[in-house]
Amino acid sequence: MIHPLAVALVIVTGALAVFGIASTVLGKPPGRPLVLAVGVVEALLVVQALIAAVRVFGGARPVETSTFLIYLVVSVCVLPFFLQFARAEPNRWGGTVIAVAAVAMGVVVLRLLVLWAGTSA
């Protein structure tokens, strides 16, 4: 893991959640800007997962390595599904569906950070 990237991800997932809730408040279905925002966050999550995976298989041992790896997989799998679900019924609530996923991914990144903090090289 790269610490600044993880911290950035906590902030961006928070921002995505705000974006999603705002689109619900404004009564708009998830449009192109929201889809792009999800894409950017997802891309960052993928980059982080790749870096972390490379380092784990390179010998780094976070506390509870198996839990760490499961969190890594979850961190990249959830947003695409939720985006799909949010757009399947295009109404105002799609934004909040994305916000739920964004908050969850923020928590996942925080958990990753905590586990990584106890890593022995």
Binding site: V78, F82, F85, E89, W93, V100
Partner: peptide
């Protein structure tokens, strides 16, 4: 149940 705000509920349940 899977319409409108119910979809937000489902999202939280799925998480």
């Amino acid at each position: 149940t899977a319409t409108g705000p119910g979809r937000v509920l489902i999202a939280v349940y799925a998480i």
